[in-house]
Amino acid sequence: MSEIVRTVTRWIFAFIATYGVYLVAYGHLTPGGGFAGGVMLASGYVLLVLSRGAKEAEKSLGLRPAKALDSVGALLFLAIAVLGLVLGQGFFENFIQKSTPGEPLEILNAGIIPLCNIAIALKVMTSLFVVFVVMASVRFAGSGEELEYTSEEE
């Protein structure tokens, strides 16, 4: 793509990422949340893939760190759920809200829900990034040929 597209994409990417983080951080108060915010964050990377190609966009996050963060998101979600079992009475119990109740409509009022949103957003963003980069980096050597992946398989 041309220099104009590449430059504008870099600017737009910052705004998309900011809005995605906003959706995640205020997910318990306004429409949005972990999944919507994660998709929004991933769509910034989709824009990078479309404007610069998969190879260069892959360097912005990296396939291996993305896969690691993917697992970290899932494990973080599980850890929050089990902490409710350990510190409270039940699985997924909102132990922070039980011990220190917050004011309604404040950002720090929902206990573990924002933490869950962050874990979900991490998971959704990185897995969508991996899916899109892998699908965009498929190259065909010609009709009737086997697939060749340009990114190295692990």
């Binding site: 699908m135 498929v138 065909f140 009709s143 009737g144 697939l147």
Partner: peptide
């Protein structure tokens, strides 16, 4: 979303095999 990603990857593999 997951099903869509799986279907598109299967379509890509079919394209790689048949070229159409």
């Amino acid at each position: 979303l997951g099903v869509l990603a799986l279907l598109l990857v299967l379509a890509l593999r079919l394209y790689g095999r048949y070229g159409t």
